[in-house]
Design a protein around this nucleic acid. Sequence first.
DNA 1: ACTATACTTTGATCCAGATCAAAGTATAGT
DNA 2: ACTATACTTTGATCTGGATCAAAGTATAGT
Lengths: 237, 237
Amino acid sequence: MDFSELKSVCYGCSIRELCLPEGLTDEEVLLLDQHMLHRVPVRKGEPLYRTGDPFKSLYAVSTGFFKTSILHEDGRTQVTGFQMAGEVLGLDAISTDHHICDAIALEDSAVCEIDFNQFEQLGQLMSNLQHRFNKTLSREIVRDQGIMLLLGSMRAEERLAAFLVNLAKRFSARRQSASQLVLRMTREDIGSYLGIKLETVSRILSRFHDQQLLEVRGRHIRILQPQGLDRLLNSNI
Amino acid sequence: MDFSELKSVCYGCSIRELCLPEGLTDEEVLLLDQHMLHRVPVRKGEPLYRTGDPFKSLYAVSTGFFKTSILHEDGRTQVTGFQMAGEVLGLDAISTDHHICDAIALEDSAVCEIDFNQFEQLGQLMSNLQHRFNKTLSREIVRDQGIMLLLGSMRAEERLAAFLVNLAKRFSARRQSASQLVLRMTREDIGSYLGIKLETVSRILSRFHDQQLLEVRGRHIRILQPQGLDRLLNSNI
DNA sequence: ACTATACTTTGATCCAGATCAAAGTATAGT
DNA sequence: ACTATACTTTGATCTGGATCAAAGTATAGT
């Protein structure tokens, strides 16, 4: 079995890029890469999946940017996350075999599709993989609880600071600039995610700009005082 | 291997009672029950675990009632859930090998402790168990996202209605009355969970009482018009 | 390059829920 | 049963963020 051959199955889609985390042997990586079906491109604005679609695969974002949002019967909508390269989409669908949110590309993107049945079988063969996957699922729970803390007990200004700090950290983990952010989502998306209105997002960004914490030019944001944002976050008035 | 002997390891703690769900064979149930260490009693007000404690076990609530809450550095606190018989505590700790929340008993309770290392090994032997556990973790993600929707886009009245409807549903699934609720938590706990202040919780309960939706006598609540609560929930003004 | 459409900013006003305050009611320990 | 402590209710007032409105700025399609 030739490594380069495997790579051709899904170019650029090694398991190493998935947040399905480190700690796998090379053999395990190879086996896993085999099970990634084709690389799927998703055009900006298009859904990768929609609420109610049958669940078949997990998706690791390869390039690009997504948002996920859930839909309440009465038409209300809530953005539940933004996913960038290396992050996994579809974990919530395991529970019901149907997707319970929409995943929309916010720019031209590509994902690696992982057949979940095959993946589970592989987990039976490799305890380490299964262990890692348990951690991945648990990490998603922790992430969600962090957002519950944010939505349940922070003021609008703190929410936005937390959002920016989090984005910067994730960009920086991907060796992109932690101070130069290009937002892929609208003010409305941000507001929905943070439980505030788009006007409030805009006003607070302007305020941060006036306070020299940020430089805001539309969706281009430069963080001038990261410690300033951190301080705001941990102040609790 | 004798069933009654196994039962004595942790009386009343069959895997069937864990929300680690249905679909296991009797053999699997037996093997699993073996791995439940002793039944652990927890006194009202006492922690089952605290933030930072090393993660060793999952806990299935056997009897009683718990709350989990996370603690922000600056002292803010957020109740992230209430757990009753059959629900599992500790899933969030898998990700970091340390508990990231406090689990406090709200009445004298008992849990079944499940050694997680042993449980993972068992999962390797029984693909079905592992499959079910993946679903359990995923279900927790779905639950959390439901709370995000609640916190991000509902008004206080709707949050409280959603809370009561959810509690009633869970009681009813446990063959307890769906209309006669005895709340185990304070108004402050409820408020923290719902992202509103305790005074607001109290006022809205009184309002529901005035509107004949509920009968409220302290922590004893009788739901008079379940459809009224549902309507409120799906109205979106 | 042009035009339509979608997004963003900013201002003026309003209101749901927070805060402050105080009285009333459980609950637990002696 | 008594008393202390913790919890709950209700009232009065305030305020952060929502809502309504309108002008300004990107972006995409022709």
